[in-house]
Design a binder for these strands. Structure first.
Lengths: 343, 343
DNA sequence: CGACTCTGAGTAAACGATTACCCACTGCCT
DNA sequence: AGGCAGTGGGTAATCGTTTACTCAGAGTCG
């Protein structure tokens, strides 16, 4: 019923045209020498037979699959889904295939995903994961996206301007009246990712400029799933932690945090101003609507794809450390800038 | 710099183990004969070297790409993302690769996606799209998931028990006191998809049983994006449409609809009860929290993947029309069952 | 005219895995 | 001892393409 009939191969084409496979191949790839008469004949034959090259054979021979890998932490997070869409759009037009893989929160799965990508012989990798990657074992250009390791500045990466993002978040809190702000982020990210460190740097920087006391201890550590953030924020408050402003390093986590605050009997924004990060579409639809630092997910994906392609084609690269601008979006989770009181 | 050094091949493994490639291959595929000592040694060697078979070579030799396609309407919708995850998990374990494609809302893009999948020689397709598919031109088994065309009952499909879902939605509205319910869905889906028709059938059926007047005219047509639903619901109300219960065929659409209702000056649930469909995680976090019919996205994905695999392996299939149970989740967008008044 | 350079095209060896076929050996039965 | 079956594993062909060599013929130049 679903038997695969063998598609026509280059060998059959060669026989029909009274040529060798080599010549056919040269015409098809437009490399090497052949007469225009030969070219026309081959092209006509291809049209007639509907010949399509066997991608497996091609991949095997050329050691290039015309495929790229995209590792994301969680495709069910809209932010990553939008990035994936942008990457796919770019590469679809270039006739590359895209393998989208969910790294999840598990280092072992991350490893097995990388192994499988290796087996597929991808020509490039866009990597968004909290887990370290040994570039040597990928054997292809790698672009880090959004989550940039902080140990190596030589690598290619695209991220938002996270320092500016941190500054904007701090500004939102300060201008909403917060005087004891804290930041919520994932412990591992803080250790590993420039992404989060940059946000914190910008955050601290702005607070210092405005004379608001803040130290590296004013951080709550938690995974940024909704439920984990909710629980950890609630627990922090119940254990006596006091703060009147909260900057969460992702919207999903921020929404959870809002609930944690309310669970603990406080109100947002009256008692605590909350600012998230990403601006996923639900920020506008949750209650209170979430103030956040908007990342341009499409731009991140697009720039990452472009950079990767430049690397794969070994084009000279002016800047392998691209920063995409961010934007502050104020909604109901921060108080309206009520003629900001004493400095 | 990014020169590809050849990954370890089966030939090198053979040399290390002092065996032939044939034996290695037999162990790896667990077919043919070999001693348990050999097996252990090979397995250890694979672990040690991180060997991953070259899929291109495998595909070339076996004439099977070991790849499947997954067409989804919008990967940024959590419901589809969860399905994609389940499918990926299933096939990852079987060492299949998965091509995830966004059909989007555009028929032309849908076509070009199918064309590209064809070129990749996929061995199977899971298809979630509102656009018709000509199975003949895919040359591989197809499983319809969630969105089942209503013109052909011979095809393989996995969906929720949508008739029951429609019944549950109706029950939620009726028990919350609605007497003039309407349904919101996409015009094309109503024409093409058994999925939506089943929901409507169940909806109408239950209403009839409870003596609530409802006809096929009590439907508002709208795309189910947040903004479109919001706008169309608002407009319907402003044009004088009156209803006190709304069943929306997706949560995203329902959340938009709630805003449309509020835009028009009415309240949810006091003036209109709203029930969605899917139970994405934001149902719990939007305000008012959304009552909805929960679909088990993971089960849908898993069952779809299993069914497809059975078809690809030409195993006898007892039931190619799988229904996954649904569940009613009551939240704040429907009034609490206030000792339901007159029959 | 001889030496050279182009041009167009063929030959055959890879690429990495699978598998039909074969063989050597062991143990067992008659 | 001879026959036979079962076991473990090697040999080599094959999948469809690409590409480094090679080469015959034609044109060009001194």
């Amino acid at each position: 019923m679903f038997a695969k009939k063998a598609p026509v191969s280059i060998k059959q084409l060669a026989k029909m045209a009274n040529l060798s496979t080599a010549t056919i191949s040269r015409v098809l790839n437009n490399n090497g020498r052949f007469s225009s008469k030969t070219r026309d004949m081959v092209i006509a034959l291809v049209k007639e037979t509907g010949y399509a090259p066997n991608v497996a054979a091609k991949a095997l021979r050329t050691r290039t699959a015309r495929a790229i890998g995209l590792v994301v932490p969680d495709i069910a997070n809209e932010f990553f889904a939008l990035i994936a869409n942008a990457v796919e759009r770019h590469f679809f037009d270039q006739a590359y295939s895209l393998f989208i893989c969910n790294a999840g929160e598990n280092a072992r799965r991350n490893e097995s995903i990388l192994a499988s990508l290796r087996g597929k012989g991808i020509d490039g990798l866009i990597y968004i994961s909290r887990f370290p990657l040994n570039p040597a074992e990928v054997e292809a250009p790698v672009v880090y996206l959004d989550r940039i390791p902080n140990d190596d500045s030589a690598l290619a990466g695209v991220s938002s301007d996270n320092r500016q993002g941190g500054r904007l978040a701090a500004r939102a809190l300060v201008e909403a009246g917060s005087r004891r702000p804290v930041m919520l982020c994932h412990a591992d990210d803080l250790k590993r990712l420039a992404t989060v460190n940059d946000r914190m740097t910008g955050f601290a920087e702005y607070l210092a400029e405005r004379g608001v006391a803040w130290t590296a201890k004013d951080v709550i550590l938690s995974p940024l799933t909704m439920s984990a953030a909710r629980q950890n924020v609630r627990r922090a408050i119940e254990e006596g932690r006091r703060f009147d402003g909260l900057f969460v390093s992702s919207d999903i986590g921020a929404i959870g945090a809002v609930y944690g605050i309310e669970d603990a009997g406080l109100r947002v924004p009256q008692d605590v101003n909350v600012v998230g990060y990403d601006d996923i579409s639900f920020c506008e639809y949750c209650r209170p609507a979430l103030s956040t630092v908007r990342q341009n997910a499409s731009a991140l994906g697009r720039e990452g794809a472009r950079l990767l392609q430049a690397m794969m084609e070994k084009r000279p690269i002016q800047n392998k450390n691209i920063k995409v601008p961010v934007e502050l979006v104020l909604r109901a989770s921060t108080r309206r800038s009520s003629a900001e009181s004493q400095s």
